[in-house]
Simulated scan of single mutants.
Amino acid sequence: MHDLTRLSLNQATIRQWDVRQAVEGCARAGVPAIGLWRERVAELGVERSARLVRDAGLAVSSLCRGGFFPAATTAERQRRIDDNRRAIDEAARLGTDVLVLVCGPAPDRDLQAARAMVHEAIGALLPYAQEHGVRLAIEPLHPMFAADRSVIVTLKQALDLAEQFPADVVGVAIDVYHVWWDPEVLPQIARAAGRILGFHVNDWIVPLPDVLNGRGLMGDGVIEIRKLRQAVDAAGYHGPIEVEIFNERLWAMDGDALLELICDRFRSWV
C-alpha cells in the first residue's frame, strides 16, 4: 500500500493518547481515519469526541466494541443487549456505521449454548441497528481467546452466523492476527464478499511476547499481510484498513514517533 488513503489508526494502538491527542496526531500525520474505543470516548464524552473528529476532517472507521453477549442469567444477558444498544447509539453519533462485536466467552463451559446466546442477541439488536444505520461487524478471534473473549474463533464461524441476518446490517471484521493461521482463510475471505465491514492489520511475533498485548508492527512477524489484504480487496472490500496493535512496548513510545513508524510500515507491508 504505497499511500495512506486507506489507513485508519485504531485507538488501542496508541493508548498513551486520549481522543483529542489521537485526533490531533492523525491530522498532523496525514492519517485520514480513526477507529475509536468506547472507553476512551466516554472520558471526553460522545458529542465532544464527535466534534473533534469532525473538525479535524477525519473519518471514524469503526467503534470498538460491542458484544460480550453470553451470560449466566437472562437478566444479565438483557443488560448486555441494552449496553450494545447504547453502543449503536454512540456509533451513530460519532459518525461511523460500523460497530465491532467481540462476541464474548461462555459463562459456564457450554460453548454451544454461548454461541446460541450470541445469535439471539444479534437478532435482538438487528432492528435497532437498522433504525440507526449501524452495521454489526462480528470479529472472529484466535482460538486462544475462546476461554475469555469470544466463542467465535474462525472466519467460517463468523460467516455462518452473519449469513443468518441481512447482509446490509450484519457482516464481519477480519483481523490478520486472528485469522492468518487458518488453512481456510482465503476461501472464507472470498466467501465473505459483501459482508466485510472492516480489515485490521498488525503482526504475529515469534515468540509471542504476550497473548493479548504482544502483537507486533507490520513486518515484525510471520503474517502474509499483503496476501490477506489482496484477498480482502478481491472480495470487494475497499474501505479503511485499521492498524490495531496491543503492545506494551509501543504504548511506552512517544506518540508522534509511533505514528510515523506505523505510517512507514503501512506503506511497506500492507
Results as ranks from 00 to 15, higher is better:
Lys227Asp: 10
Arg93Lys: 13
Arg226His: 10
Arg65Tyr: 14
Glu163Trp: 03
Arg265Ile: 00
Thr73Ser: 15
Cys26Leu: 10
His200Ile: 08
Phe69Trp: 12
Arg249Gly: 01
Gln21Pro: 04
Met1His: 11
Leu197Arg: 13
Ser61Thr: 05
Val179Ala: 07
Asn213Leu: 08
Phe165Cys: 11
Gly221Tyr: 05
Ala42Arg: 10
Glu24Gln: 14
Ile152Pro: 05
Asn247Arg: 04
Leu125Pro: 07
Ala75Gly: 08
Gln157Gly: 14
Val176Asp: 03
Ala92Asp: 07
Gly35Ile: 02
Ala106Leu: 13
Val23Cys: 03
Gly104Ser: 09
Arg229Met: 12
Ile223Ala: 01
Trp180Pro: 07
Arg51Ile: 09
Val172Asn: 06
Phe69Ser: 12
Val243Pro: 06
Glu248Met: 13
Gly95Cys: 02
Leu217Gly: 11
Ala234Glu: 14
Gln78His: 13
Gln21Ala: 14
Gln130Glu: 13
Leu9Phe: 01
Leu208Thr: 10
Val169Lys: 07
Met117Cys: 13
Val222Gly: 00
His132Trp: 13
Ser150Asp: 13
Arg249Thr: 15
Val100Thr: 05
Asp233His: 08
Arg215Cys: 03
Asp108Cys: 00
Gly216Met: 13
Gln16Asn: 08
Gly95Met: 04
Glu139Arg: 06
Arg115Glu: 06
Gly67Pro: 11
Gln188Leu: 13
Phe68Leu: 14
Leu99Asp: 01
Val222Pro: 04
Ser49Tyr: 09
Leu217Asn: 09
Ala234Met: 06
His119Val: 15
Ile122Val: 14
Ala257Gln: 11
Thr96Met: 09
Pro105Thr: 08
Ala193Gln: 08
Glu90Arg: 01
Gln112Trp: 03
Ala193His: 02
Ala91His: 06
Thr73Asn: 11
Glu43Arg: 11
Ile205Ser: 05
Ala129Asn: 05
Met1Val: 10
Phe165Met: 14
Leu63Ser: 01
Val60Leu: 09
Gly214Arg: 06
Glu131Ser: 15
Pro32His: 02
Ile34Gln: 03
Gly133Thr: 12
His2Leu: 04
Ala50Gly: 09
Ala114Arg: 07
Thr154Gly: 02
Ala158Arg: 02
Arg85Gln: 12
Val53Trp: 03
Pro32Leu: 09
Ile34Pro: 00
His178Glu: 06
Pro166Ser: 06
Ile262Glu: 05
Thr74Asn: 07
Leu111Asn: 00
Asp175Lys: 10
Leu125Arg: 08
Ala29Gln: 10
Ala146Thr: 15
Leu217Lys: 00
Met218Phe: 14
Thr13Trp: 11
Ala42His: 10
Trp251Glu: 11
Asp264Lys: 12
Ile189Leu: 02
Gly35Lys: 03
Ala129Ile: 08
Arg28Phe: 03
Val270Tyr: 07
Leu217Asp: 05
Val118Gly: 01
Ala59Phe: 08
Thr73Gly: 00
Ala42Asn: 05
Pro105Asp: 13
Val169Ile: 15
Glu163Met: 12
Ala124Arg: 12
Val201His: 10
Ala72Arg: 06
Glu43Ile: 03
Val172Arg: 02
Ile225Tyr: 00
Val211Asn: 02
Asn202His: 02
Val134Leu: 15
Ala192Asp: 08
Ser268Ala: 12
Asp110Val: 11
Ile152Ser: 11
Val23Asp: 04
